[in-house]
Design a protein around this nucleic acid. Sequence first.
RNA 1: GCGCCUGUAGCUCAGCUGGAUAGAGUACUUGGCUUCGAACCAAGUGGUCGGGGGUUCGAAUCCCUCCGGGCGCACCA
Length: 581
Amino acid sequence: MKDQIESSLQGLVDNLIADGSLTTETSIGFQVTRTKDPAHGNFATNIAMILAKPMRKSPRDIANLLLPKLEQNALFERVEIAGPGFINFFLVQEKSNAILQQILDAGEHFGTNNSGKEQSLHIEYVSANPTGPLHVGHGRGAAYGASLAKLYVANGYRVHREYYVNDAGRQMDILATSVWLRYLELCGEELTFPSNGYKGDYVWDIAATAHRAHADQFKHAVADFFAALPVDEPLGGDKEAHIDGLIAVAKKLLGAEGYSVFFDFAIDTILDDIRDDLGLFGVDYDNWYSERSLFADQRVEKVIARLETAGHTYRKDGALWFASSKLGDEKDRVVIRENGTPTYFASDIAYHVDKLEQGYDQIINIWGADHHGYIPRVRAALQALNFDADKLKVLLVQFANLYRGEERLQMSTRSGEFVTLRSLRKEVGCDAARFYYVMRKSEQHLDFDLELAKSTSNENPVYYVQYAHARICSVLRQNQEAVATENVSVELLSDDNEQQLMQKLADYPEVIRSACSKQAPHTLVQYLRELAQRFHNYYNATQFLVDSKELRQARLQLILAVQHVLVNGLAIVGVSAPEKM
RNA sequence: GCGCCUGUAGCUCAGCUGGAUAGAGUACUUGGCUUCGAACCAAGUGGUCGGGGGUUCGAAUCCCUCCGGGCGCACCA
């Protein structure tokens, strides 16, 4: 509907240009908006005000000029000029009600469109290091990414969802070593756990499983090696040197095979847990991409060689640097360390190059806001290799601050102090959590109060929307006859509540479109709350199951349409639409 | 110091490619279940849109500046 008004206005602008009354180099950026006040009609445009300057006439004069042509349009019952020069459109009712038939015809497809034109889109989200279970901080990226992916699908994109598993690098060695040390403790050894090791309870669990499987097979006397290590930080030493020493000892004493027992087992256990956790959270992937596979295929070496060949690298202090500062980064970055190992950044370049070479039209990465400084260097690398860096879009999700009442909870995988996503799901439920995470725009810092989430979970707005759906189901259950999905008798739905409800329904396709283009699923959540509100108003004001068959059918058709839209919208948010609550 | 995000009702937040009296939820006050589910609805109280300047017919929205909060600024990931 909005589109039709816009194109007819654009036609008028074209006419003005054609007959010479308007000359302009720039395109005319007028707007057509849904009005807030019904007294202003159904839609309004600011076109006359926008044209005022280039045409050197007052807005109201221009509006008067346009008015006769607009009045000829069969879409409008009448057209008015108001205020400083707004043009208000009052739609012929039949047109505005045609939406009902469209929804009943399209059903679960209502609201989808093909604006994406089958473009291929790669979207990567969560991708937390497999060094521990997911915590509530990760939940936000998961909920946001999963909803966004569904929005893109609804807009006609071919979407590939991926989790990039950082299973290479030093953090994994720290994890493996942490597990081995806990294992040694289970073997009866006494030691001071490194301050930089992973201290979470899950490390004990993994160690215990390893101990059950291998008994004391990998036991070594702590006294033989601990004394020779650099001292840990609490004793006045360097915690990094201390843990590196421990890793080296673990690798030496265990040998490659023995070490990989702990290394692989730790990763596999944690990754299985993450996979399971996200699956139960309704967050799915098409692929889990291993960072180690980039090394196995020599992709990292090759991509660095390409950077070198292209003349974007230099040697300094024994390391290989990428001159990213020439391409917009604030400083140059190391890709190969002094000790010969590639940095995380190096494999990340290889990862992104791989995506672009696979021919994706667009790549979306969803990162925690703390990684924002990382964006310029990745873009720089892609530019250096002659890729279109604009194909990569990085969306930042701000932190979720976790509170228990007044107390701010720290979330650190290292220290083991965190609330897991798993426990959140169990405490507040999947639907409430998904809804809550996506309710706020992603740039907004989110305060997540566990006390509040638990104690008032019944007041979570998700139930308001779900309740609307359950109520509709209940009414439809009690109605014995089938509701016809053809020959909608919209002329019987002339009540204010009914008209407003239908207008709201008509907005849905536009919401899907704009939520996607703005990458803002929270606007969809907002819409669903508003739709539910209109429905509850209607429900409380009107009896649906009335004696007149025609009237009953018309009203049931309307709430059936509401049900379709609620189901479709909630599915994108990742929330269930229960028939009973 | 530099960069990204942010400051709107007591609280949690929408609105931000400029538009007509700034909106929800919650809290508080009052009213509504012999009628399709009261996890609901109706009415009311509540705001110098962080401060100041600028652009514009018109600014919560754009620009400048100051103040406050979060997060970055590694040969960690």
